[in-house]
């Protein structure tokens, strides 16, 4: 049953496009139409992936990057949801904070890498500085938006049942605001992966990001692309995991996505 649902969920036309692109890429490289040192064929990348997996490098690099993503995303979620609720529930807090948020929001996290390096050196902390701030904003803004857009009628229901402020938030506002919070969490998770990889490329020499740099410097484009493909696959897996978690925690989420 679960297997059938999984097969039904696979985007077959999209997968077919990917397969077609890979085949075309292979044909173009093999035929010599594109003959560049740093453009290996997909088959070479697949062999490189196998080589990395056999050496055990891939597993340890994936573990490092995933731990950085988990810590960074969790910290951003805790901060973002808390601050989002505060701003969503308090017009005064919004009035005093929104200007600052709008200034901070467009700042690229990677620009903080040199400062983080000075403060924390080559470490996971440096990765966190680069990761947490940019991930915080979509979570915070979506949470705030979700809380402020809870319909007045739902608040009236709470008052009718004489719910306390705490119960109104937990039983009415939180469930109603969940879809945008989950949307923010999904955006944040993808962003956390990208930023963790960038932080590893420019700051902390560890994980998948440093793997990309290391293999580039070692003149192994096949292994470099194998790392890049791995990042893509992890992105798909994280998104799928996030959706499964949302469905488990939020039964109405499947209906919201238009699924039976």
């Amino acid at each position: 049953m679960a297997k059938g649902r999984l097969i039904a969920r696979i985007n077959w036309p999209g997968t077919a496009v990917l397969v077609f692109v890979a085949l075309a890429w292979e044909a173009i490289v093999r035929s010599g139409l594109l003959d560049y040192e740093y453009l290996p064929a997909p088959s070479a990348i697949a062999r490189g992936w196998g080589e990395l997996a056999r050496e055990g490098l891939l597993a340890s690099d994936i573990a490092h990057t995933l731990s950085a993503v988990a810590i960074g995303w969790t910290a951003a979620m805790v901060l973002g949801v808390s601050l989002g609720f505060l701003l969503g529930l308090s017009a005064t807090a919004r009035r005093y904070s929104l200007a600052s948020i709008e200034i901070l929001r467009p700042m690229p996290g990677v620009a903080f890498a040199p400062v983080a390096l000075l403060l924390f050196g080559f470490s996971l902390k440096t990765e966190m500085v680069v990761t947490i701030l940019p991930v915080l904003w979509p979570v915070l803004v979506n949470t705030m938006g979700g809380v402020t857009s809870v319909h007045q009628r739902l608040h009236d229901v709470g008052r009718t049942f004489r719910l306390s402020r705490r119960d109104t938030i937990l039983r009415i506002v939180l469930p109603a605001a969940m879809p945008p919070i989950v949307a923010g969490a999904r955006i944040g998770l993808g962003l956390a992966l990208v930023l963790a990889v960038i932080a590893e490329m420019v700051g902390n020499p560890a994980g998948l990001g440093y793997g990309i740099v290391r293999e580039q410097q070692a003149l192994r484009p096949d292994l470099m692309f194998a790392y890049i493909v791995t990042v893509g696959l992890i992105g798909i897996a994280l998104n799928a995991g996030m959706l499964a978690l949302a469905e488990a925690l939020l039964p109405s989420f499947r209906q919201l996505r238009g699924e039976p």
Binding site: G121, F122, G203
Partner: peptide, 16 residues
Amino acid sequence: SVAQNLSILPGTVGKQ
């Protein structure tokens, strides 16, 4: 310890 590039290193002496 390995590092990615030279230009980021002067700020790390005395700390890391």
